[in-house]
Nucleic acid binder design. Structure first.
Lengths: 155, 155
DNA sequence: GCTTGACCTTAACTATGCTTGAGGTTTTAC
DNA sequence: GTAAAACCTCAAGCATAGTTAAGGTCAAGC
């Protein structure tokens, strides 16, 4: 018995194979693993072997990222998938529904910002006290682009 | 003549005053200055004094940031404002127009992503080769959220 | 049986957008 | 005229999302 056939070869993927098929770099897969986004088995020689399901998982991660969701949130969402069995189409659809509504919210806020920017183009009022863009408290809130974009209580 | 009245007091603002009025931290103003987003005069004692226009400038920076534009881009946009005179309302409106169209583009891409996510909710197909979300080459492109979200030529 | 390519780990580096701390100076207020 | 508040610079630190490099091991082809 060779050392390496513990995680059944042919049914599992090496990190290089996953990288090629999923389009993400090997280093990224390592990184995702340290963040708990994906998991692997190891061969006797300590090499990673992934179940095929990892491809869908990586695909889902990339889609979620494109919607603007940070990796940490993606991780906790994925952690809520049923343990012990491979996720079903409905499991993924459920996740998609949650993310879809977050995406909706992002789009809503950006559209609001756009409309107000429209109003301001005419008047150049960008720094006047009355300009809605200057007073983001009303309905806009932070857009989550970075650590604390705007002071909550800056009077 | 005291050392400090070189940049006319009452007509200029200290960094603390700008912080209070604009709602951004003093450290942030320092940071913006190192990045060339704002500029200051110095008193004889080496303290910053800002022309009042800095308030509008900071306001504009914050608005631009909320639309998702990185500071470096904001800097180069601001650098194109006419030198030698204070920017007019039309100058700011011109900037707003440019940013408005970038914001438009962002919204367009996110909406497209949302629609496709809708399609996928029904089928749970997120990792199938035929799923549009898996093949972002078509019309979606990178969303600029981070360094290289997707491999351009990953076959 | 040995060379080469793929893999391993750990640490450090990139970029963005700031904040925090240390150690020292200036201004302001009394 | 002195104490406190505000300011200064420079360096390091934090968070996010990775990449790159160094130094070594594993596996596969010939």
């Amino acid at each position: 018995m060779s050392k390496s056939d513990f995680p059944v070869p042919g049914q599992t993927l090496s990190v290089g194979e996953v990288a090629k098929r999923s389009g993400v770099a090997v280093s990224t897969l390592h990184f995702y693993e340290t963040k708990g986004l994906i998991h692997s088995l190891r061969t006797g020689g300590n090499q990673r072997r992934y179940p095929r399901g990892v491809l869908r998982r990586v695909a889902v991660i990339k889609v979620a990222q494109r919607t603007g969701i940070p990796l940490a949130s993606i991780q906790s969402a994925l952690a809520k998938l049923p343990q012990g069995r491979a996720p079903t189409a409905e499991d993924w659809a459920e996740l998609s529904r949650v993310w879809r509504s977050e995406l909706d919210e992002r789009i809503r806020r950006l559209s609001q910002l756009r409309d107000q920017l429209d109003d301001c183009i005419g008047c150049g009022c960008l720094s006047l006290k009355t300009c809605p863009l200057r007073n983001p408290q009303d309905a806009l809130g932070a857009l989550g682009a970075g650590p604390r974009l705007l002071e909550p209580g800056a009077g």
